[in-house]
Structure formats: C-alpha cells, structure tokens
C-alpha cells in the first residue's frame, strides 16, 4: 500500500513547534517524519491510530463514553473545590473549554507553568 504524504505538518513535542515536517503515513501509523529531529521523529512514530485501550474507565471498569462523561460531570459538580489542571499536551481549543469548565464549576485552574 502506498503511503500518503502530509506536507508542512506541525510537531509540538518541544517549544520550537516546527511546521515543516513531511509525514508519510498509511492512516494507521506514521512511517516517516522528514525534517523532524530525533525527539520529534520518535514522538511521531510512537503514536498509532490503533484502539489499544478502552474508550473509558470508570472506577477501573470499562465504560462507554457517555457513562464516563456523566461520571466526570457528577464528580466535578459534587465537589466544593474542584481543580482543573494540566493543558500542556492539548490544543488551544480544548484549553478554552477547560477555562470554561473551571469558570462554570467555580473551581481552581492551573497549568504546568506554576511548578
């Protein structure tokens, strides 16, 4: 099967955020990452589109996405002081939703920067 090529893809493994990577993939796994450095290449080749893990785990048991979302919402809603933390390895669009989450919950919001 011939590989598909994506030109000028972005790598976010480090703060350089190189946007000139040429990715060769077969929709399942990335086989080549041209122009990326050792760290970036290892990172791209490490990820697959396989279904390795269950969609969600609630209390250690497999659950559907809907159940997990409801469980998460219930835990967060019941808490007096919930904490929203992280946001390093995610997109700005998801980060904006996280700010809205903390705002709606009246909770704490923090990122890796404060360490």
């Amino acid at each position: 099967m011939s590989l598909q090529v994506i030109e000028n893809a972005t790598c976010t493994f480090c703060g350089c955020v190189c946007d000139d990577i040429e990715l060769h993939h077969d929709e399942f796994r990335i086989h080549k990452a041209h122009h990326a450095c050792v760290l970036g290449t290892a990172w791209f080749l490490n990820h697959t589109a396989e279904k390795k893990y269950p969609v969600a785990l609630v209390d250690g048991r497999e659950a559907t996405l809907d159940e997990a979302i409801e469980a998460a919402a219930t835990y967060l809603h019941e808490a007096d002081m919930p904490l929203v933390y992280g946001m390093s390895n995610t997109t700005c669009e998801a980060q904006k939703e996280c700010v809205a989450l903390a705002d709606q919950l009246g909770g704490l919001l923090d990122s890796h920067t404060s360490l």
Binding site: T12, G15, Q95, L109, T113
Partner: peptide, 22 residues
Amino acid sequence: GHGNVTGADVIMRWQTGFPFGI
C-alpha cells in the same frame, strides 16, 4: 517546554486575564 504550555498561558490570559494559578 514541550507540548502546548505556551498556549495554556496565552489562552488563560485571554480568557481570565491571568496566566496560571487562578
């Protein structure tokens, strides 16, 4: 550092006025 930590700062500054610890 790695990932989108800069984005987290920028988004929090944009939405709340503060970069972290909110």
